[in-house]
Computed example of a mutant assay.
Amino acid sequence: MCKVIAVCTSEKKGTAKQMVDEANLIEEFGIEGDAHAGKWHRQVSLLGLEKIDEFNAKGGGVNFGDFGENLVISGIELTKLPIGQRFKVGETILELTQIGKQCHDKCEIFYRVGQCIMPTNGVFTRVLKGGKVKVGDEVILLENENKTLSL
């Protein structure tokens, strides 16, 4: 089963995010109070737990939110999903809009961690349906409005 392991937010771009128990996602905007929220295609960022674990196994020593990710998800290889893939996460529906990104030039994350895995392992989504997302929520891949993909 895919599920939410951590929910993280920050008030400023280019910084590590802090873990919270739950967040309110606003349709076509993003996480309420998060620096990356807005009318664009990268409203909510996701990173796989397995990628963070791999980084830490090599001596990384990072915490959830250190790469600037909003949601840490377990049980699925996010970068293998197609653009346009929809997810039901808690009360919300997210749509995958971008895989990877160009990193900020020597942002706070670089100085704290030494490298960032978001450019190669992070994915970005927009909020199609708002609502609450909390730690432990199931993540369901949607084929369309009426069908669910098997994991």
Rank of each mutant, 00 (worst) to 15 (best):
F67I: 08
D66H: 12
E50T: 01
N56T: 10
P82E: 13
T79G: 00
G48L: 02
G61N: 13
E50F: 00
E77R: 11
L46K: 01
G90P: 06
G90L: 11
T79Y: 03
E54Q: 13
K58N: 14
L78T: 02
G75M: 06
L71H: 08
V89D: 03
L94A: 12
L94R: 08
I52Y: 04
Q85G: 07
G48F: 00
V89S: 05
I73C: 08
N63A: 13
K88Y: 08
Q85S: 13
S45D: 10
F64C: 11
E50Y: 01
F55T: 01
I52C: 03
L71P: 06
P82L: 11
N56V: 12
E69A: 12
V62S: 02
N70L: 12
N63V: 02
A57S: 15
I52V: 15
T79N: 08
I83Y: 06
E91N: 14
G48N: 04
Q85Y: 01
G61E: 07
G84C: 09
S74Q: 14
F87T: 03
K51H: 12
I76W: 04
G61I: 05
N63G: 04
N56E: 12
L46S: 02
D66L: 05
E69L: 11
L81Y: 03
E50H: 05
P82Y: 03
T79I: 14
F67Y: 11
I83E: 06
V89A: 09
L71S: 06
I93V: 15
A57E: 10
K80H: 09
G59Q: 07
D53I: 00
G59F: 05
T92P: 14
G61S: 05
N56D: 10
A57H: 00
R86E: 15
E77C: 09
G65P: 03
A57V: 00
E91T: 13
S74W: 00
G60D: 07
I76L: 14
K51Y: 06
G68N: 10
E91M: 14
G84Q: 12
E77H: 09
G65D: 02
S45Y: 11
I73A: 08
I83P: 02
N56W: 05
G90D: 11
F67C: 09
E54K: 06
S45P: 14
I83M: 07
G48D: 06
N63M: 10
G48I: 00
L71I: 15
S45Q: 09
I73Q: 05
I76T: 13
D66K: 01
I73H: 06
S45N: 07
K88N: 15
A57Y: 00
L49R: 14
F64I: 05
I52D: 00
L46H: 06
A57D: 09
G61D: 07
N63R: 12
G75V: 07
E91D: 15
N63P: 00
N63F: 11
G61P: 03
E77V: 12
G59P: 03
G84F: 07
E77S: 14
V89R: 02
V89I: 15
L47N: 04
G59Y: 02
F55H: 11
L47C: 13
G75N: 07
G84P: 09
N70S: 14
P82R: 05
R86N: 11
I93M: 13
D53Y: 00
G60E: 03
E69M: 12
F55W: 08
T92Q: 12
L49K: 15
K80L: 13
I93A: 10
L71T: 07
S45M: 12
N56F: 05
A57R: 08
L78W: 03
G90K: 06
D66W: 04
